[in-house]
Computed example of a mutant assay.
Amino acid sequence: MTDWLEFIAALTLFMVSHMFPVRPPMRPWLIARLGTKGYFISYSFLSLLVLGWLIVAAARAPFVAVLPQWEIFRWAPLVAMPLACLIAVGGMMAQNPLSFGGLGKQPFDPDRPGVLATTRHPLLAAMALWAVAHVLANGDLAHVILFGLFAGFAVMGMFLIDRRKQRQLGQGEWQRLARGTARLNLIRLPLSPLPLVLAGSVMLVLILLHEPVIGYVPLPW
């Protein structure tokens, strides 16, 4: 049991850090003292630190095989991650009244939804692809727990945000904005030059940092 303590502690801290700072009355209290921008920067920085520890702790946990260690599963991240990077980059570049994460300057046009035609929830969809691919590539108990939670969180979040936005916007306005979008439809993924270049750069950085940060070379050859 002591071999699992670091993973359990990191997982507990990750869950606590994502439960309390985003809920009232903690969130308004933090925003009042840090400002909206300061709150999101601080929260994002804390989340990345805790996520990094959690991933490292999962790698250090005892190996207990859950899924078959088939060689083809090692390719899952290399297939899924370029798509995840492209969806995440495209989502960050566009305004998104139907979910969160959009930083684009151009107002959202429901007749030209861009990446939202692929998914209304680009960051959650990217997280789901990342998580499922890494469940397959690792297959041990700690990583199945870790990435399975992320995948479940992402999928559940898509449904919850759709319901919340329908209440906030009203059913008619939500349907007007969402008519050309999908919860997840990879066939409709737009392939614009700038997002492709940025996503490729992000993918390259992830590959280069994977071994020094995680301790594992992600390339199967």
Score class of each variant (00 low, 15 high):
131 A>E: 00
184 L>V: 09
199 A>M: 09
130 W>T: 01
160 L>Y: 02
169 L>C: 13
136 L>N: 08
169 L>D: 09
204 L>W: 05
129 L>Y: 10
130 W>C: 05
137 A>Y: 02
143 H>G: 11
139 G>P: 13
171 Q>H: 03
144 V>K: 07
175 Q>K: 15
137 A>E: 03
179 R>Y: 08
178 A>E: 01
206 L>H: 07
205 V>D: 03
193 P>I: 09
168 Q>Y: 07
185 N>G: 08
171 Q>S: 11
166 Q>R: 15
129 L>A: 02
169 L>N: 10
129 L>K: 08
175 Q>F: 00
150 F>E: 06
197 V>Y: 15
136 L>E: 01
177 L>R: 02
155 V>W: 09
185 N>R: 12
189 L>D: 02
195 P>L: 09
201 S>N: 13
130 W>P: 07
182 A>G: 02
135 V>P: 08
184 L>F: 15
146 L>W: 04
128 A>N: 10
193 P>Y: 08
202 V>C: 15
163 R>E: 06
153 F>P: 00
158 M>K: 05
172 G>L: 12
137 A>G: 01
156 M>K: 11
175 Q>P: 13
170 G>V: 06
157 G>I: 13
130 W>Q: 00
166 Q>I: 04
183 R>C: 03
203 M>P: 03
176 R>W: 13
140 D>P: 12
144 V>N: 12
179 R>V: 11
195 P>R: 01
164 R>H: 10
159 F>E: 06
142 A>S: 15
152 G>T: 15
154 A>M: 11
167 R>G: 11
181 T>E: 04
180 G>R: 00
195 P>H: 11
163 R>N: 09
134 H>C: 01
129 L>T: 00
156 M>P: 02
176 R>Q: 15
195 P>K: 14
183 R>S: 01
148 G>V: 05
177 L>H: 04
176 R>E: 06
137 A>V: 04
165 K>T: 14
195 P>M: 14
154 A>T: 05
171 Q>V: 07
186 L>H: 12
184 L>C: 02
137 A>W: 05
149 L>E: 08
139 G>R: 00
134 H>K: 04
161 I>N: 01
136 L>Y: 03
149 L>V: 07
204 L>Q: 04
168 Q>E: 11
144 V>W: 03
137 A>R: 02
164 R>F: 05
143 H>C: 07
157 G>Q: 01
145 I>W: 13
195 P>Q: 10
180 G>W: 01
161 I>L: 01
184 L>W: 04
199 A>E: 04
134 H>W: 00
193 P>R: 10
204 L>F: 06
178 A>W: 03
